[in-house]
Write a protein that binds this DNA or RNA. Structure first.
Lengths: 164, 164
DNA sequence: AATGCAATGTTATATTGTAACATTCATAAC
DNA sequence: GTTATGAATGTTACAATATAACATTGCATT
């Protein structure tokens, strides 16, 4: 199927497909390094789940992952997915988008950072952004109220450039 | 039950109870005004759900509301609660805390504002805060990436002053 | 080989949220 | 006052998301 598709749409999408494939591979390599560093085990199952998450451009639902995984992995059940997701989140390889009950590969697992996202309500694409000033301002505001910050999430809903 | 309790703990909590009662009443009055202004109908059912939300200090789960409501309202079903919650959110009287699947009364329904929260992971209390600079910075960051913002939510997890 | 712990398998169930259609209620038009 | 209308609620069923609990497997160390 992959071959036929590739031929049929070669000129227009082949490069894009390969780019994306490269991007996924880069993410997986980076994930392996990150786990090595953290002394965590990126087992084949966990690695495969991470790969499935990266396969799409938008956040993925747990049960969509499950349906896909089940086609290639007999014992797949909800716990299978949720355990993998828990591991991947702990390892900083995946973020949960709370407003969507969905999961997104993290492209910056090599350094600590907070979860700040722009969510397009039209095309469902999500981009993670980093803004140290923003993180600092949130921290400062919290401290001013005597609050000790462990974690912060920012989810911004709206329209991406191409959907406006 | 209420009377016995009140007597048993009169000195220490009676004032607090009354303060909270006053606070709830203020919120309900304010909600009535807000609906009047917006041309929306705060029916007895919706008003009661809002009151139940305000009864606790922490965000409330939909099915907890349902259990409580069901004791006094025969036809209460999930849809009953979710419809009321949808209405109250549209009217700006209630916020949803995405990271907890829980709902919180809004103390500033008289003016437009964004949903910024400090969530204590120890005592479960939540405080909403307003920081125009923060909202503006988020907006600016988004615009810089060509993103048009409709709504923003900030959820900060950590420890409140008294839980540190 | 024996032990122990992490990872996964397996089954069941809890929690959260919607869909779809029927009925009731308030309001305005007649 | 009746009637037409749409909003609100009642009612039943089910979908979607997530966790609990215990069994089994696999891997690393002794």
């Amino acid at each position: 199927m992959g071959v036929g598709m590739a031929k049929a749409t070669k000129k227009k999408t082949a490069a894009g497909v390969h780019d994306h494939r490269r991007c996924v591979n880069r993410a997986l390599s980076s994930a392996e390094r990150a786990c090595e560093t953290q002394g965590k085990r990126l087992t084949p199952l966990r690695r495969r789940v991470l790969e499935l998450i990266w396969d799409g451009h938008a956040p993925v639902k747990a049960y969509d992952l499950l349906r896909t995984l089940a086609q290639e992995h007999a014992g797949a059940a909800p716990a299978t997915i949720y355990r993998a997701l828990d591991f991947l989140q702990d390892a900083g390889l995946v973020h949960r988008i709370n407003s969507q009950n969905a999961y997104l590969g993290c492209n910056a697992s090599d350094h600590p950072h907070v979860g700040h996202f722009l969510l397009c309500t039209s095309c469902s694409n999500v981009v993670e952004f980093e803004n140290d000033g923003l993180a600092a301002l949130i921290d400062e505001q919290a401290r001013a109220q005597g609050f000790h910050v462990d974690r912060q999430t920012v989810e911004v809903m709206g329209l991406c450039r191409s959907c406006q």
